[in-house]
Amino acid sequence: MNMIVCVKQVPDPEAPPASFQVDAASGRMVIAPSVNPVISPFDEQAVEAALRLKDAHGGKITVLSLGKDAVPHVIKKPLAMGADELILLQDDALEGGDSWSTAFALAHAIKKIGQYDLIFCGRQAADWDAGQVGSGIAELLGVPSVTLARKVEVSDGKAVVERVVPDGYEVVEVSLPALITVSNELGEPRYPTLRGIMATKKIEPIVWTAADLGVEASQCGVAGRRTRLLKLFKPVKEGRCQLIQADSPAEAGEKLALKLREAKLL
């Protein structure tokens, strides 16, 4: 079975909030140099989903990532976890895209890879949280997509996916090839192993440019954007504390519950 996992390098979302500032004038994020780059956590779960299928059925996992600022020890982590091949899309023409132009470039790269049974993406990237690229790729490739997977099983040319919904999950069957976006309910991704890290050192990523993908510069990156960011700002949050007075813990609990219901939080 051939699997492709799309991953994105993002600033560590676990870094302290003060490390992320907004430059309102340019509409850009200013990120403190102390923030380490990481693979977007949902994307690591997408890698884990593919690895579980590889453990069960064998196969090949190709990791695909767009971005010329990829740091070797970060972007190679999926290889150290057990993926087989890494393809990087690196070209000035591919930078600065929106969900559309990113999906466009990734879809062309996937066409160039050719053989695939399953494509995995994280449910959304931990930097902009748009959650559009996965479905966009499926649309451009004309393959079915199932979003928010918490479990994926494959048999007889079909995938059975448990898909997270607000009050539980639904089970969806989909024919292959298909694209699946993975949610955090899948569970913790595995650690890389030492052996994986040592082997990965010797693996050189395959690098493709826009020309390799056969796309025009006007179709991708900044030029290919179909959306425009109008305003970027940090919402102001006000915290107010209200103390519940009561004679006993039981009474305090009851009063608290009533307050929460009043505020429509329960």
Binding site: H73, A80, Y191, P192, L194, I197, T200, K201
Partner: peptide, 16 residues
Amino acid sequence: LGEEHIALRRLVRDFA
């Protein structure tokens, strides 16, 4: 540090 040293530090720090 080499690429593998940084990756190893990340792994052990994460694990720890």
